[in-house]
Design a protein around this nucleic acid. Sequence first.
RNA 1: GGUCGGAUGGCCGAGAGGCGAGGCAAGGGACUGCAAAUCCCUCUACACGGGUUCAAAUCCCGUUCCGACCUCCA
Length: 465
Amino acid sequence: MSALHLYDTATREVGVFKPLIPGQVSIYVCGATVQSHPHIGHVRSAVNFDILRRWLTWSGYDVTFIRNVTDIDDKILHKAVHEKMPWWALAMKYERIFTQAFASLNVLPPTYEPRATGHITQMVELMQILIDNGAAYAPGNGDVYLEVRKLKRYLTLSGQKLDDLMPAADADETFKRDPRDFALWKAAKAGDPSWPTPWGAGRPGWHLECSAMAHAYLGEAFDIHGGGLDLVFPHHENEIAQSEAAGYKFANRWMHNAWVTQSGEKMSKSLGNTLQVEVILQRVRGIELRWYLGSAHYRSMLEYSEAALDESAVAFRRIENFLLRATEVLDLPLEPTISDAFCGAMNDDLAVPAGLASISENLRAGNQAITDGDKAAIAKNANEIRGALQILGCDPFDSNYPQGATSDVNQALDGVIKLALKERAAARERKDFAASDAIRDGLLDLGITIEDTAQGPRWSITEKS
RNA sequence: GGUCGGAUGGCCGAGAGGCGAGGCAAGGGACUGCAAAUCCCUCUACACGGGUUCAAAUCCCGUUCCGACCUCCA
């Protein structure tokens, strides 16, 4: 079996993945700021890192996966005024909606999901270290800043130079020793929530939270830090700055997912081109949206279009349909296995598109095997497809996805349709094709599709779209 | 201005020196009473101009176009 290779944003190279502690992998992924409805870009990130996690777990690692919730920031405060509710109520409202969106796409819950507001103590401790060792300063206005000029390795992740950065538009720079210094802590404004610190009451800056929480749950060094590509600067640079200045090794490897775009442009609120997960889920099922989002390579931009989404969903249904037929023919549950081809693809920096090619090959061979009645070949191909789908989080038999009714109602329906099919078979027998077609068309009008297979007719409920 | 990424067949989308991934669409065929489903076949591409090489979509130089980050961003 090949070894897992992953890209590292810091080196811009794909290299062999070697965990700090054999057999264990620790991952910190920047989660959402819960101030609005999730769009498909948000969940793409979650899906990408969920696939990474599932692959690591399958590969035998004990994975600790942290994804935080930023539940305090400027936008949340503004939005709370707008929606006429306390900031904490607004944050909780959207956190629940995000959680629901993740669940619809079968994104596994993180091992721990810390909230920023629950880790103020750790943030104050981190600031104390930084102030004590001279890396940070509190100018007396309640803010605390990190002095970036003192850092040796600042901006190495994004490969920029401090002096090349466009000057920040901050008006309030009078307290900064350098305009590029960034706030670890922001002084309380009247009416805003605040927490006491030795340097005055205030609230955390965005970057500080992640450093503090990563340290709290994963320690001074961990394997992988993930997030969207747009977090490289300033967020991740600043996390590195704070953590390294405090003497931590911090992340060993950086992974960033690319965007979902529309008309070539990144999905963003300012462009007004965001597509809410809840809206898309009225068009396709969660498993189909996940298949769509997961099928692109995580470092490639995914250009959204309804046509592409629909096409992807149709392709998925083909695969799903094969799995269903295979299960019927074999009369056994499928046992997920990972083929060499799929394994090789995933080990190559999670090359899902290459893995998809192997699924297509399995699909073709598997369908052929059903026609031939070759049960061994059916099982092999179906098992390999199911194994791949599990890694991608798109296993149709996964109980996290809504399963077709297995109840009495479904059995009754099956009986009724079989009765109709019997009538149809009889009509065909006596060459009364008008009658047989009437039955088939009648069922189709009800959303029930009939397929005549080598093993006899089978029915399925047609997806509405 | 600085940094980074991209341009592949009608469409989507991998690959990264030598066997032209895969999917969708289209056309043809098999199967079928007709369909549907399924299978087989066909369609042979790498933005442009130079260069390196026995060999370039892949490496080098230059050009054009598109996008991202430098302000909150998955």
